[in-house]
């Protein structure tokens, strides 16, 4: 296959990934690596480098739309970014040590977990019980707009959330993904943030976390312009288009289909990793 054919195929696949990611809210980054590594036989290190680029593009591109709504909490985001960026640096260094087989198996497990999470409805764990003392010291409590005006919320288990965010960072740096699934655990379940606050704050953090490992990947020569260019442009176009058609699409059926696709990719990644094909 020459560069022209490869660019067309990867660009098209990345467009669909970005579109589905935006429509289902699951993020398109998670399917870029399986797409490149399983379908096109690209070395997983090149695939991860290209995927990181796609993750930064979608996060930064969507941020402008999110901020106007006033949901995201920049204090919580910035504080947790200490954990995610440090974790991402650790993950990027791990990627240079671990064999590609182990990386493939870990990737498969994360895909299966993401698929499981997509099958469950989103729950709101937010409440008005007194905040964690650390959250008070860090001035994390805030309010967000609802249909009944501004609603106050409190923040819990900052330590657990911080630790889980470190894990999200490691996975992001190791696998080149946004780690949305682990961020949900940290912000929705542990810290009990309102669903809309956690989603938008997490989107704000994904780009910064990915940038923390992208520097290391670039310096290692994992980011190939011939692969990353169609991935970046395809995902960006797909996610922008997805945000436009969001209103008319039947999102529920799509979520189920995308969840099954992710599950299948997860199983294949684990199989290929164990069989030594990656």
């Amino acid at each position: 296959m020459n560069y022209l054919e490869l660019t067309a195929i990867i660009g098209g696949g990345a467009f669909i990934a970005g579109l589905l990611g935006a429509l289902t809210g699951l993020g398109g980054g998670v399917v870029i690596v399986p797409l490149l590594a399983l379908a096109l036989g690209v070395d997983i290190r090149y695939a991860i480098g290209a995927s990181l680029i796609a993750v930064i593009a979608t996060s930064s591109g969507a941020a402008a739309a999110y901020v106007k709504e006033g949901y995201s909490n920049i204090r919580i985001g910035m504080f947790l970014e200490i954990a995610t960026t440090l974790g991402a640096l650790g993950g990027a260094f791990l990627a240079g040590i671990l064999s590609t087989k182990i990386i493939a198996v870990i990737f498969g497990i994360v895909l299966i977990y993401s698929s499981y999470l997509s099958s469950k409805p989103k729950e709101n764990h937010s409440d008005n019980i007194q905040s964690d003392p650390l959250a008070v010291r860090l001035r994390m409590s805030s309010s967000y707009p609802t249909s009944n005006g501004m609603k106050e919320y409190t923040v819990h288990n900052v330590g657990t959330g911080f630790g889980l965010m470190g894990l999200a960072g490691v996975l992001s740096g190791l696998l080149g993904i946004g780690s949305g699934a682990v961020k949900v655990l940290a912000m929705d379940h542990a810290m009990r943030l309102p669903f809309k606050v956690s989603t938008t704050t997490s989107n704000f953090m994904i780009g910064v976390t990915a940038a923390a490992s992208a520097g290391v990947y670039l310096n290692r020569g994992y980011i190939d312009p011939g692969l990353a260019m169609p991935v970046m442009l395809g995902v960006l176009a797909g996610s922008l288009f997805g945000a436009r058609v969001l209103m008319i699409a039947r999102v529920k059926a799509l979520r189920i289909v995308f969840g099954i696709v992710i599950l299948a990719m997860g199983i294949e990644m684990i199989y290929n990793g164990l069989a030594g094909k990656i």
Binding site: I56, G207, A211, L218, I223, P225
Partner: peptide, 8 residues
């Protein structure tokens, strides 16, 4: 790609 990394 580098400009993209620099954005965040």
């Amino acid at each position: 790609l580098l400009l993209l990394i620099l954005t965040p």
